[in-house]
């Protein structure tokens, strides 16, 4: 894999100058390479992994919705996916193998809000046969990052 992508995958906060030092290129070359990845849709965005449970006064509920659908004659699953992902409440949409077709991540402020969103917005979509909603109770690891508790460095500090 390209070194720049490997670096950004783990730490998108490094500056172009820092990345340039790490890969032995100029800052300009790194800037251009990243812009090119963005243009080509290889880098699709930058997000921060936040453990909302540790932030006071923010309540956030996420559910995974298993959707069964009937693929459409001409467009298959694509148009259905487009309809689903148009909602702001939808965080992720993936086509699955196995017992159902789409896995849809939905966030809201309360269980009820999410449940109503599924009932009012997702279920009525043409081609949707059934929905099954399961709520996330606790996140342990997300995007490769262990959320809680912070892991202590066990390495023996008195060893030289």
């Amino acid at each position: 894999m390209d070194k720049i992508l490997t670096i950004l995958k783990d730490n998108p906060r490094l500056t172009n100058a820092q990345i340039a030092a790490m890969v032995g290129q100029t800052e300009e070359a790194v800037g251009e390479a990243i812009a090119d990845y963005e243009r080509r849709g290889i880098i699709c965005g930058y997000k921060t992994v936040i453990d909302w449970e540790k932030v006071e006064l923010t309540e956030k509920v996420t559910a995974i919705i298993e959707l069964k659908v009937t693929p459409r004659r001409d467009t298959g699953f694509e148009k259905i996916a487009e309809e689903i992902m148009a909602f702001d409440e939808v965080e992720s949409v993936s086509l699955m193998s196995g017992g159902y077709d789409f896995s849809v991540g939905v966030t809201g402020h309360t269980f009820k809000e999410v449940a109503l969103f599924v009932a009012k917005r997702l279920a009525p979509i043409q081609s949707v046969i059934s929905t099954q909603t399961t709520f996330i109770l606790k996140r342990y690891k997300q995007a490769g990052i262990i959320l809680s508790p912070a892991q202590a460095d066990e390495r023996g500090a008195d060893i030289l």
Binding site: K3, T6, I7, L14, A17, Q18, A21, M22, V23
Partner: peptide, 10 residues
């Protein structure tokens, strides 16, 4: 090696 370059530069 990536870290080495980052920290030397830093």
């Amino acid at each position: 090696d990536l870290r080495r370059r980052l920290i030397v530069n830093g």
